[in-house]
Amino acid sequence: MLRVGAHASIAGGVHNAVDEQTEYAGNCGQIFSHSPQVWQDPNIDPDNAAQFRDASAEHGVGPWVIHSSYLVNLCTPKDDLRRKSIDSMQAEVDAADLLDIEYVNVHLGAHTGAGVDGGLDNAASALDELDVPDGVTVLIESDAGSGTKLGGQFEHLATVRERTSLDVEFCLDTAHAFAAGYDVSTPEGVAETVAEFDDVVGLDDLACIHLNDSKHECGTNKDEHAHVGEGLIGEDGMRALINHEELRDVPLVLETPTEDGKGFEWNVERVRELRDDE
């Protein structure tokens, strides 16, 4: 069954995200538990949490993903930022437990001078400090790889998994992978990229795909998303991703823009149009 949805707002209460998702005709999705631009703990009312759980079950919406704050940097060598990042992630996995959300998604962050190996070590040891509730899994997201940010190479993801004691899984962002140099604009490129991901990381641990097209060329490390099939990955690449036999059961979460009169509802429908059996 095709699982596709989009990032939804929790404005007015986290339960409202379910109604928004159904308006997009989505059946899975992603939320922020608070503003991603500030250091802030989730402020989720228990009654709203119960409404979220009940509505998700009633409408068959799931899995859900909580996306961590943009400020979190697991790779940092700076003690204060490291502590804030760990505390923020702990609050996120606890919020996921309250909401019966399966996944918390996080970028590795930037090593800012610690070096690639040092940054990956920092990320692994930061993950080791989390007390993750049963039923919640931390997902490490692939990155566009600009500056000293890590996660652009599949080897970075595999290395962190090897070095941490936490059972982690992964989220592959198609626009990020494209920006990092994995050319998924053709069926052949998709096949090669998926095979490489399987060889280096393992498809068994791929829990979610952020399905985004890209406004920038492959390998530019520029992260700017486009509507499905209308960016430089294009329709051929998107169709190949959506229909790849090894990816067909992986939930697709859209982080596409709202512009040109098109939003999440348009993009969810576009995914369904590109799916062979829909």
Rank of each mutant, 00 (worst) to 15 (best):
T148I: 05
D167P: 01
D128R: 13
G231H: 03
H111R: 03
P77M: 08
A240P: 02
K215A: 15
H227D: 11
P133K: 08
I209W: 07
G135K: 10
T193I: 15
D41S: 14
L232C: 03
V194K: 04
G147Y: 03
V228M: 04
G234E: 05
I86T: 10
D236I: 01
G261D: 08
D54R: 10
T76G: 04
Q51E: 13
L127Q: 00
E155I: 14
P187E: 05
F170P: 10
S146P: 01
Q30F: 03
G119D: 07
A57P: 09
P46G: 07
E192S: 12
D121H: 13
H156C: 06
I233M: 08
K149V: 15
D47H: 06
R270I: 09
G237Y: 05
H59Y: 10
A50P: 00
V104K: 00
K262G: 04
D183W: 07
M238W: 02
L252T: 03
A175W: 12
N105V: 05
T186R: 12
G29S: 00
A17R: 13
N73Y: 06
N105A: 09
P133C: 05
M1K: 07
D167Q: 11
L98T: 09
T159I: 07
L157Y: 09
Q30G: 11
H59R: 13
V253H: 02
Y182T: 14
G62C: 05
H59V: 10
F52K: 06
L247H: 00
E273Y: 03
G109T: 10
A8D: 05
K149Q: 10
F154N: 04
S214E: 03
H210P: 06
V136P: 00
W39L: 13
N73I: 09
Q37N: 10
G234M: 00
T112A: 12
D277W: 12
H210V: 05
L241H: 06
C171D: 02
W64E: 01
T220H: 05
W39V: 11
P187H: 02
G147E: 03
L203E: 13
Q21I: 15
W39S: 04
H176R: 10
D128Q: 13
G62Y: 02
D213R: 12
L232I: 08
V132L: 06
T112E: 11
G261P: 01
L2T: 14
F178S: 02
Q40D: 00
I209L: 13
K149M: 14
T112Q: 15
E278Q: 14
V93S: 05
S146L: 04
M238D: 03
L81Y: 09
E246G: 01
T22Q: 01
